[in-house]
Simulated assay, not measured.
Amino acid sequence: MNILRKVVTPKWNTELCGGHGCTCLITCCLPCITFGQIAEMLDEGQPSCVTHALIYGLLYLVQCHCLLSCSYREKLRAKYGLPAEPCNDFCVHWCCGPCALCQEHAELQSRGLDPSKGWTAHRRAAPIPLSMFR
């Protein structure tokens, strides 16, 4: 018996140039904040959002920030099996950095993480496994 299997390719839940509300405004004015929030979530709180934001800000001064931010886009894609769309991670951040950061922030939110609340808030909200009570 032949069973046809449909291959499901994971997709981004948000568009690259979609409206992302307040995050878009913050990102256009201070992209280091949005980057710091994203990086903190992907690195599970170590180092902090502030540390990530400072590093990004310093790299922004010498126009090398996209080297760092594209590596976190790659990390996000690897974590959720997302395709490199519309092009590779470096090109997305080089050509449309603020849009890429907004999309990544929104993607984390759509997957149940809120980068604006930080990693510790996420950890506190995580359910306690029942096995701990046995």
Rank of each mutant, 00 (worst) to 15 (best):
Met1Pro: 04
Ile3Tyr: 02
Arg5Glu: 07
Val7Gln: 13
Val8His: 03
Glu15Thr: 11
Leu16Cys: 11
Leu16Lys: 13
Gly19Pro: 06
Cys22Gly: 11
Cys22Ile: 06
Thr23Lys: 03
Cys24Phe: 07
Ile26Glu: 09
Thr27Trp: 01
Cys28Thr: 01
Cys29Val: 11
Leu30His: 05
Leu30Asn: 00
Pro31His: 01
Cys32Asn: 06
Cys32Arg: 01
Ile33Phe: 05
Thr34Tyr: 10
Gly36Tyr: 08
Gln37Ala: 11
Ala39Asn: 12
Glu40Met: 08
Met41Gly: 14
Met41Thr: 07
Leu42Asn: 15
Glu44Ala: 08
Gly45Ala: 09
Gln46Ser: 12
Ser48Gln: 04
Ser48Ala: 06
Val50Arg: 04
Thr51Ala: 13
Thr51Cys: 00
Ala53Glu: 11
Leu54Ala: 14
Leu54Gly: 09
Leu54Pro: 10
Tyr56Arg: 02
Leu59Tyr: 02
Leu59Met: 13
Tyr60Lys: 11
Val62Gln: 02
Cys66Asp: 09
Leu67Lys: 04
Ser69Glu: 05
Arg77Ser: 12
Arg77Asp: 05
Gly81Ser: 06
Leu82Pro: 12
Pro83His: 14
Ala84Pro: 03
Pro86Met: 04
Asp89Lys: 02
Asp89Ser: 15
Cys91Glu: 12
Cys99Ile: 03
Cys99Tyr: 15
Leu101Val: 02
Cys102Gln: 02
Cys102Asn: 05
Cys102Ala: 11
Gln103Leu: 10
Gln103Arg: 14
Gln103Pro: 02
Glu104Cys: 05
His105Asn: 03
Ala106Trp: 09
Leu108Met: 00
Ser110Cys: 07
Leu113Ser: 10
Asp114Thr: 09
Pro115Phe: 01
Ser116Tyr: 15
Ala121Asn: 07
Ala121Val: 05
His122Gly: 05
His122Gln: 05
Arg123Ser: 12
Ile128Pro: 09
Pro129Val: 12
Phe133Ser: 13
Arg134Pro: 15
